[in-house]
């Protein structure tokens, strides 16, 4: 960049760097702490960042491998943590996929079609979304309890019920995607119609491929949101083998005994699928997809 800079810019750059490094430490510390706790012998929340007696006992516990302690006792894993992890991934993937499907089609209607009460619908959806789902916990419980009587696979203690209740959160995503759709010139779809495409084909072959970045964002956001969700899952899921990881890890924290080490190991495990999903998704987070299509 050739712009002329004032002389004190140099110091400001350094100040900015220091602030950023401090911020980074602030963010990284809890994360490193959790990792450290998961490798520490015994269940202690406090201690040095680098474990003095590193041990794999907690990881053995969460990965379901029997572990032999120093004094020769075999410790059997108490909880099916890997099952929980699998439950979490299953529920999160299904929910995110469904949210993506429903919110893209919904957003298309709001962005491209003309119908009565469109504006009112959008605003009321937004306002309804503002009430935290937690406030409706009792309602969720009662609803799925009754529903289970009629449709057993949608009753309490099923994953499909959980997915259903999470789907209520797609309004935000409709808004997000709608905004993105509106930034894409309608002429592109019009030209597809002229080329012989039906509205669905124009949506599928033109609009969707151009919206991949926002679709990736929505997928990642809902995945993260669902995998860490606690209140609803804790109410709807009851038997141990059905729990998601977020609810399950709470089992390590008894009132009398907080098993911080096991808890930390399970927590790190929760982070894995998020990391994987994010790594995959970021390939699609590219800008400039629509460049060159239209001249404004």
């Amino acid at each position: 960049m050739a712009m002329v800079q004032p002389r004190n810019l140099h110091y400001r750059v350094w100040a900015a760097r220091i602030v950023m490094i401090a911020l980074l430490c602030l963010v990284m510390f809890p994360f490193l702490m959790i990792i450290s706790v998961s490798f520490r012998t015994g269940n202690f929340a406090t201690g040095s960042l680098i474990p003095e007696n590193p041990s794999l006992e907690h990881w053995a516990m969460v990965l379901g491998i029997p572990y032999e302690t120093a004094d020769g006792n075999i410790v059997e894993p108490t909880f099916p943590v890997l099952t929980w992890l699998w439950n979490s991934i299953k529920v999160s993937l299904t929910t995110s996929a469904l949210i993506l499907t429903l919110s893209t089609t919904g957003a298309y209607a709001f962005a491209r079609l003309r119908f009565r009460l469109k504006h009112h619908l959008l605003t009321s959806m937004m306002i309804l979304q503002m009430f935290p789902a937690v406030l409706a916990l009792v309602a969720f419980h009662a609803f799925f309890n009754k529903l289970g009587g009629v449709v057993p696979w949608l009753g309490l203690n099923t994953h499909s019920a959980l997915v259903m209740s999470y789907l209520g959160g797609l309004t935000m995503n409709i808004w997000l995607i709608k905004g993105y759709f509106e930034s894409i010139d309608v002429a592109l779809e019009e030209s597809a119609h002229i080329d012989g495409a039906t509205p669905w084909q124009a949506f599928r072959h033109i609009l969707l491929p151009l919206s991949v970045p926002i679709l990736a964002v929505v997928f990642v956001l809902s995945f993260i949101g669902v995998i860490g969700e606690y209140p609803i899952a804790s109410v709807l899921l009851q038997s141990v083998d059905k729990l998601t990881l977020a609810v399950g890890v709470k089992q390590f924290l008894y009132a009398q005994n907080y098993l911080w080490g096991d808890f930390a190991a399970a927590a790190v495990l929760t982070g894995m699928p998020i990391t994987v999903v994010f790594l995959i998704a970021q390939r699609y987070l590219v800008s400039g997809l629509t460049a060159g299509g239209v001249k404004g």
Partner: peptide
């Protein structure tokens, strides 16, 4: 189209 409307 005036704006070409090519599929980018």
């Amino acid at each position: 189209f005036q704006s070409y409307a090519l599929y980018p």
